[in-house]
Each structure stands twice: as structure tokens, then as C-alpha cells.
Design a protein around this nucleic acid. Structure first.
Lengths: 237, 237
DNA sequence: ATCCAAATTTGATCTGAGTCAATTGGCTTT
DNA sequence: AAAGCCAATTGACTCAGATCAAATTTGGAT
């Protein structure tokens, strides 16, 4: 990955027009707090493929995804990769205990984040238990998703994995942008494979099979979900 | 699973002699707080195989494991099981958002927990941000472990899975009871298989293989780690 | 001790997904 | 529009781990 060339917008009052103002961690703050809060963060842009932070890095920042999609992953020494999640607008990244990130994060396509210095953020949170409670809530929700994903990785077949992924991804996009049966897939087949614990060939074959059976249509940059009910049936199995 | 027949000890001051007083969530409380805290909890015993709570249950309690081992798992509709973790003394269970547990928990062998009513615990935590911070810390640590386990489930071979499990389990016991090369395994082969995303036969064969190669010795109720270095090498691979 | 039931190990065989190897398709560059 | 490049698809074949099927060991209960 090439060195991260970031563009930092002029700092200032921008929470007002922030797309994820009502979501994310910010939803736990009132108007006055939000005004104070916005001085802590700065918008940072990343180009497609750029690494936002790496697993070994000391944590110096928290990130709130404002726009775009990121892949969150861990690598084994020999290069095998497991994607542990995809981050979308509203997702909060950077929580950890050891002071080091425990996964890496790349931009898939162009990404904008709201970046907070760890120290300043820590001071801000100090006397705002409702913000801490919000962060705790987010962590616990993620923990639940992580456990669901363990079931998928450990106990589901390739067909089930792919169907579950497509439905889950669609649901996240629905929550973000409203209902639609065309599901954009900004990530590569390799990314999907590394998320599902499969190879790129198996993902491709499974997509083709789902298309042959009339469950999906493979379109440019994504899929169209033709038969959601059948996809659900495959995912539940 | 037979209906849970629990024995509730006479309530009273018992934090003083609690084995996990310095660990768990309690470590964030001072002496005065601990005195107040102990009235919220009651010790409850479970027999081997009893279910402490189920995935669908409404959360009414939090649990602090005091003694014994529990398996935490999720079931698919068709009966496939994924164990998402084993709980040991000091582990805190019951955090969730939806108001429902998102996994089930069985006692492996006899278990003692410190059970807290959700409402009372919620009130107690209200004005104790350091307790909330401690719980957040525990959640984030678990999240990191969950991600590590995703890598294992999605990207590691059977040999690597088993070696990693044995080393990780040993490490937890070391932290709890001090160093020893004999590693008790209170859970069944089926439990290990469901934790690692394997079948019971593969686990058994891998144990045998490790024994043949002089890495471990299979002893009654556990294993003896003969060659930790070689086990590490297998786990890292 | 002796019997029974369950857990574990071992063996033989099968198969879902991986590996290896071409193609194909889409985009960019020239 | 031709060339080059990378991502995705498709095909042929392999193999790690699953499945099916016995032993064998272990642990209680009597």
C-alpha cells in the first residue's frame, strides 16, 4: 500500500452538516456539547486502497466514518487475511485496550472520516457518562455481530455464507440509504472471500449459481436481489 | 437440558472471601462501594450440564463467574452449534443491547456465579463511571478476542486450530492458577470441535497426531504440553 | 466387580471447497 | 481501436476435513 496521502479540510464548525450527526457516537451529545465536540475532530479524506491505520500501530486517534466503505482485517504472518468487518458511515473505530489497534483498516473507494485525537477525546469523555454509555452500547452491539460472524465462519456452508452476506449487506445499506433491491458491492470478490472464509473462486461460483437459480442478477458493481425470500431460505438453511 | 435446579446461598457479606474480588468488574470498586455492591449480588450454584441462560431469554441478570467453566454458544435452527467462548472465573456475562442474551450459556461441571438483578445493577452503575469504564474495557477486550477467533475459524487449518486452542486455553489457566504444563480440559471433544469449527473426529485425530509427534501427551481429563515451542510453531504457521 | 451408556478413538470412504490453470470481460492508456 | 492489465469467471483436478461405521475406553450405577 502506498504511503497515506491525506487531505485535511480546514477545521471549523462542520458537525451541523455532518451526514452521521444523528447516528454514530454523536447522537448522545446535545447541541452545546456537539459544538465543543466538533473542535476535537477533523475531517480527513482517503483515496481508494489507502490504509487508514494498521494492526500494529499505536492508537493515536479514533475515527468516525462519514462517507465511503472500509475493510477491517487481520493478517496472518504468511499473508492469509481475514476481514473482520466492513465499516460504513456512522461506524466508530479505534476502541481498544492495549493502546494498539487490533486490526487494520483500508479505504475501499474514497473515504471520509472524522478523526479525533485520542487524548483530547479521552478528556472530553471523562465527565460525559452518556457518551461513554453510547460507546459501550456500540461495542456490545459489535460484539454481538462478531459472535454471529463466528457462527457463519465456523458452521455454515459456502452457499449459506454468500446468501447471508448478501442479505446482511443489503440490510445495512437499507438502514443507511433506504430500501432497494439493487445491492452495490463496492468491495472486490477477494474481499468477500476473505470476509466469509472462502476463496475467490468459490465466491464467484456461488454468485453464478445464485444467478442461474434466479435468486440474484449479477450487475456491474453489485447484484440485484431478484428473490429475497429464496435468499433468506438459503441463509437460514 | 433438565430444568435448572439452583441452590442459592444465604445472602450476606461475601465479597470479602470472593475468589475473583480483585479481578472481574469488582476491581473497579473501592472498599465502601464493594460493601454496597455485595447486597446486589447473590451466589448461585449450577450443576454440570445445566443451562444458566438461553439465547432467546430476556436479560434479567448479569453474571460474574466465581468458579467453574461455562460454554457460551449459539445454535442454528438445524442444530449445528458454534461455541463462541468459554467463561472462566472472573468473566462477566450478560451485557447486551436488545434486552436479550445473544448466546446461551451452560455449566461445564459445577459452576458458581455471582448473579445481579439487571435493574439494581443498572441503578448502581448509574453514578459510577469507573465501573462503566471497567465494563467497557471488558467488552472491548472480548471484541478483540472475538476478532482473533474469526481469523482462526475463517483462515486456519485443523492443526493450527487445535494447537492455538491448547496454547490459548493453557494461557488462561496460567493467568488464573499459575504456570503448569498439564492442561486440564474440562470440556468434551464435541465442545472443542464446536469451538474450533471442526468435527469431533478431526479434533480427536489431531490430538492423536500431536501426541504421536511428541508435542502433547493425552492424559486423563486433559493434556500435558510436552513441547510448547513446537506447539507455538504449529499455531503460528 | 459387572453391566450399561456415553465419550472417544480409529478406520474407510466421500465430498465441498480449494488449488491450479486458462479464459473472458472491463477499463485505461496510447 | 489495439494493447495491456487486472478482476472475475470457468473448468479440471485434488485434498483436507466431513461423514459413516466400528471398535475401544471411560464412568457410573448397581
Amino acid at each position: 500500500m502506498k504511503p497515506s496521502v491525506v487531505t485535511i479540510e480546514p477545521n471549523g464548525h462542520f458537525c451541523n452538516d455532518c451526514a452521521v450527526r444523528g447516528a454514530a457516537v454523536c447522537s448522545s451529545l446535545d447541541a452545546a456539547e456537539l459544538r465543543e465536540f466538533e473542535h476535537l475532530g477533523r475531517r480527513v479524506h482517503f483515496d481508494a486502497g489507502e490504509t487508514v491505520f494498521s494492526e500494529e500501530d499505536i492508537t493515536t486517534s479514533f475515527y468516525n466514518v462519514l462517507d465511503g466503505v472500509m475493510r477491517l482485517y487481520k493478517l496472518l504472518p504468511d499473508g492469509r487475511r481475514q476481514i473482520v468487518g466492513f465499516a460504513l458511515p456512522g461506524d466508530f473505530l479505534g476502541m481498544n485496550i492495549s493502546g494498539r489497534h487490533n486490526f487494520s483498516a483500508d479505504a475501499i473507494g474514497v473515504v471520509t472520516v472524522c478523526q479525533f485525537a485520542k487524548a483530547a477525546f479521552g478528556r472530553f469523555i471523562e465527565d460525559r457518562p452518556q457518551l461513554l454509555r453510547r460507546i459501550n452500547e456500540l461495542a456490545i452491539r459489535e460484539l454481538g455481530q462478531a459472535r454471529d460472524h463466528m457462527v457463519l465462519l465456523g458452521r455454515r456452508s459456502a452457499d449459506e455464507k454468500v446468501a447471508t452476506f448478501l442479505l446482511g449487506w443489503r440490510e445495512r445499506l437499507v438502514a443507511l440509504k433506504g430500501l432497494s433491491d439493487t445491492v452495490p458491492l463496492p468491495m472486490s470478490r477477494q474481499d468477500i472471500a476473505d470476509y466469509l472464509g472462502l476463496t475467490i473462486e468459490t465466491v464467484s461460483r456461488t454468485f453464478t449459481k445464485l444467478e442461474r437459480h434466479g435468486v440474484i442478477e449479477i450487475i456491474h458493481g453489485g447484484i440485484s436481489l431478484l428473490d429475497p425470500a429464496r435468499a433468506e431460505a438459503l441463509a437460514a438453511a
